[in-house]
Design a binder for these strands. Structure first.
Length: 311
DNA sequence: AGTAGCACCTGATTGC
DNA sequence: TGCAATCAGGTGCTAC
């Protein structure tokens, strides 16, 4: 499922095709893809038509394309996209574009330097969406590193924290936020308002790597442990990114739902009952906070207040 | 304020 | 065999 590394792969794959392209027409094939836009698909179509895409920017799992219009003003609006669980983008030349796939929720017709392109948004499970909205200055100095889009983020993304690979992540503040409250540490890792980009799969992987039990209360997590968790998160995401970036061809923007990184490299997620790659103990699987969770009961000790008190 | 729980949706898989 | 229940996932909303 698309988490930070997968969304970054999509962003990086999309950017060279769409930057500088003008949106000629938008064919919405399922109205719910525009459910976050107040006026629905009609407003999405009307506000996108004629816009030129200035780049592709990402924070955590949120992706957006800043838009400029004929007046040459800096981008003030964006086409925002969230892949949900199963979203994909595919790019075709207009001449080679196939009939829309049954899971195609929207087809955008683009034009750049005389070339006509088709950008399909596919989404089997329909948790993803496209949205057109204004860009807002953010008070935390976020710089997406995308030139003209610096320091502006879509209105719907303002509540999302900097992501785990953002060089400007305020690490001490992030660790403090992770160590607050009564929730289990895994639920805290999944809280996109604190540190974004971590989903169910990488949460399990990071916890396994850092040897932390998913149900350890956040407030019983030491600075050292929280710090190790953040570093494990960054390491596993960098590893995934290195593999996710390997497999795309010109017309397919890889969302990497199953292929690529998945099925290799994973030590915990989806491996309930299989031996731990570190100690050989059978990995546990249970639902925690409504999410399938996987961990090693030997390497990742459950928190015990009594043991903590003795020490 | 912080947290838990559910709705949203579809297709694959499992159970009867 | 056929149908129904279950599961998976991220986010945003509601209710405590």
């Amino acid at each position: 499922m698309p988490e930070l590394p997968e969304v970054e792969t999509v962003r990086a794959g999309l950017a060279p095709f769409v930057t500088g392209a003008t949106i000629v027409a938008v064919d919405v094939r399922r109205d719910s893809v525009a459910r976050h836009t107040p006026g629905g698909s009609a407003e999405l179509q009307a506000r996108l038509r004629g816009a030129t895409i200035a780049g592709a920017v990402r924070r955590g799992k949120f992706l957006w394309l800043p838009l400029t219009f004929a007046d040459d003003a800096p981008p003030a609006e964006s086409l925002s996209a969230h892949l949900g669980m199963s979203g994909q983008f595919r790019v075709h030349t207009a001449a080679d574009a196939p009939a829309p796939h049954p899971h195609c929720r929207a087809r955008l017709h683009l034009s750049r330097a005389g070339d006509d392109l088709v950008l399909d948004f596919l989404d089997q499970r329909t948790f993803g969406y496209l949205h057109v909205e204004e860009l807002r200055p953010t008070d935390d100095g976020f710089a997406g590193g995308q030139g003209s889009a610096d320091a502006l983020i879509p209105a719907s993304v303002t509540h999302i924290g900097r992501d785990a690979l953002d060089p400007d992540l305020d690490v001490p503040a992030a660790l403090r936020a992770w160590r607050r409250g009564t929730r289990g540490i895994k639920q805290v890792l999944l809280d996109q308002t604190l540190v974004s980009g971590i989903g169910n799969i990488y949460a399990d992987e990071a916890l396994w790597r850092a040897r932390v039990h998913p149900e350890r209360p956040a407030q019983a997590t030491s600075v050292a442990t929280a710090s190790a968790l953040l570093e494990a998160t960054q390491a596993v995401m960098r590893d995934a990114l290195a593999q996710g970036g390997t497999s795309f061809d010109a017309l397919y923007v890889n969302v990497n739902g199953q292929s690529g990184y998945f099925g290799r490299g994973l030590e915990a997620y989806g491996r309930g009952g299989e031996p731990c790659g570190r100690c050989g103990n059978a990995l546990s699987r249970a639902t925690i906070g409504g999410r399938a969770s996987h961990w090693c009961g030997r390497c990742q000790r459950r928190y015990s207040p009594r043991r903590a008190a003795v020490r």
